[in-house]
């Protein structure tokens, strides 16, 4: 379990670097460090399905980010002139909120069941009946495409809607100069 906390720590550091560094290419790389740490954590808790998706999506995102950075600018000009008085006020308010939020999260995480021991009966039923009811050897595929296929349909609809949204925003016809 200690290695999970190690990667969590790496993620925190990389995320802070990604927001604070002035060079945008370095920020993109730190963002990639966050994503790949998540992928390694998925492997450590034995979820290879999620790890594959996480790695591939991360690579695709970083490629698009790097392409944008190469085409526009390397320098983040908003960093450096953020210490006006209103910014200090907002930072104080944010720290207060973050502290309260963390306190609430710690309180609620105490209530969770131990890792790997689900209290819900549904999950164990999925594992017990997966192979015999659906016939797929990969239980994840059984769950997302048979037991809970309706959820997957919703997920596919989200992707479909986002593609339509991008196409509608980026279209040439009807664009005002």
């Amino acid at each position: 379990m200690i290695e999970l906390y190690l990667f969590l720590f790496i993620m925190l550091i990389a995320a802070v670097i990604a927001t604070e560094i002035k060079d945008l290419l370095a920020a993109v790389i730190s963002l990639g460090a966050v994503g790949f740490s998540v992928a390694i954590m998925f492997i450590l808790v034995q979820a290879p399905d999620l790890a594959i998706v996480q790695i591939v999506v991360e690579i695709l995102t970083i490629v698009i980010f790097v392409a944008v950075v190469f085409r526009t600018t390397h320098i983040d000009e908003t960093i450096g002139k953020r210490f006006a008085s209103t910014h200090i006020l907002s930072m104080v308010l944010f720290s207060l909120f973050a502290f309260l939020f963390l306190a609430a999260v710690v309180q609620s995480l105490r209530e969770l069941p131990r890792f790997g021991y689900a209290t819900m009966r549904v999950a164990s039923e999925y594992i017990r009946l997966g192979l015999s009811e659906c016939g797929g050897a990969n239980i994840v595929a059984d769950v997302i495409l048979d037991f809970r296929a309706l959820d997957t349909l919703g997920e596919a609809t989200v992707l479909f809607t986002s593609v339509i949204g991008v196409l509608a925003l980026m279209r040439k016809i009807g664009r005002k100069r």
Binding site: V56, N138, V140, A141
Partner: peptide, 24 residues
């Protein structure tokens, strides 16, 4: 996808990655 880790989503993203690589 029904036998080993992966599936439609992961494989689809890999295919998209190959096409994006070619275009880039």
């Amino acid at each position: 996808g029904h036998l080993t880790p992966g599936g439609g989503f992961a494989g689809g993203v890999i295919i998209a990655g190959a096409l994006v690589l070619r275009i880039l």
